[in-house]
């Protein structure tokens, strides 16, 4: 799945099998993630997302199959892999008897970061996660969103190549979710490779370069968003307001090959495009050609929920 053909993928998972007693949590899962990508891991509860992430985080040994990070097998050399990864679980995992700064110093020591570098490094990660003012605040007194950002600051301390974020936005209020999303975009711009699992599908669609949809321990779809939509023949909805709307113009619009349907709503038109045949930009150009004067042109985010519902059946492992 790597974008760059010359560079080997950072994460390679092949035929991964994870078993708890008699339950198969993950079955023959295979995927690759290139450097600098954001991989959205989607699936219903119990699908095997957390198990897969825990294997990559060296917390679980695979029952069968292999997983490598930067070419290093997670089961064979976990101590090397741990230096390459930063893991943020779906719970806080913070020591509540420490202050934010002490918490980061604790993990800086755990990552064997030289003592001289620690103050500056901790100042930087606190600034990045917008927690500078909470430097000496007890962790116990931080809000849920702040604790989550502190966890992210902790993950960044040793500058890992791969971030494993298990439900980072779970339980956060809308503002904290937006802040977390912006933070992830910033990390992407810094060139980090990120695996992020989430249930908030439209948020993943906004910043993930690739998506893996998992159900009952099996990967049911894997690729870029566009690839998945094309494979599923999904439609994108564009909301339009035209200054010169007329029956003739609507008829001409419906005749365009990329248009699947035009629905007239009280204050706008909802146009469904065949995603595999055109892009919103091409459709806008076609409208100008037809002489339409566009007052509002608002493409919906890709319809992840439809894709998810179409691909999954609600099974668990």
């Amino acid at each position: 799945m790597s974008d760059s053909a010359s560079e080997p993928p950072l994460v390679v998972v092949s035929d991964l099998h994870v078993r708890y007693g008699k339950t198969d949590a993950v079955r023959k899962l295979s995927f690759t993630i290139g450097r600098g990508e954001i991989f959205g891991f989607i699936g219903p509860n119990g699908a095997g997302k957390t198990s897969t992430i825990k294997v990559l985080a060296t917390l679980l040994k695979p029952s069968l199959g292999t997983a490598t990070v930067g070419g290093v097998d997670v089961a064979q050399h976990p101590e090397i892999v741990r230096r390459k990864i930063g893991y943020m679980p779906d719970f806080f995992g913070v020591y509540e008897d420490l202050t934010a700064s002490e918490y980061l110093h604790f993990f800086a020591a755990a990552y064997h970061i030289p003592t001289g570098q620690r103050p500056g490094l901790i100042r930087d990660v606190l600034a990045l996660t917008d927690l500078t003012e909470k430097h000496d605040a007890p962790v116990d007194g931080l809000s849920r969103g702040m604790k989550q950002r502190l966890s992210l600051a902790r993950v960044l301390l040793h500058d890992p190549e791969l971030l494993l974020l298990d439900e980072p936005a779970s339980g956060l209020d809308p503002r904290a979710r937006i802040e977390m999303r912006e933070l992830l975009k910033e990390l992407q711009s810094m060139g980090k490779t990120i695996i992020v699992s989430s249930h908030i599908l439209h948020e993943l669609a906004q910043f993930c370069s690739h998506i893996g949809i998992i159900e009952a321990g099996r990967m049911v779809a894997n690729g870029s968003l566009r690839d998945i939509y094309r494979a599923l023949s999904l439609r994108r909805i564009i909301h339009l307001q035209l200054a010169n709307s007329s029956p003739e113009l609507l008829t001409a619009m419906r005749a365009l090959p990329e248009v699947a349907e035009v629905e007239e709503q009280p204050d706008r038109l909802a146009v469904q495009l065949h995603e595999d045949q055109s892009t919103p930009e091409d459709f806008l150009a076609a409208l100008h050609t037809l002489g339409a004067r566009v007052r509002m042109f608002q493409p919906d985010a890709m319809d992840m929920e439809t894709a998810f519902m179409k691909l999954t059946e609600g099974k668990v492992a």
């Binding site: 679980p89 509540e96 755990a110």
Partner: peptide
């Protein structure tokens, strides 16, 4: 119980 074990185990501390 404090859910800190997993986080600690992903550091180089064995």
């Amino acid at each position: 119980v404090g859910q800190t074990l997993d986080v600690l185990l992903t550091t180089p501390v064995s």
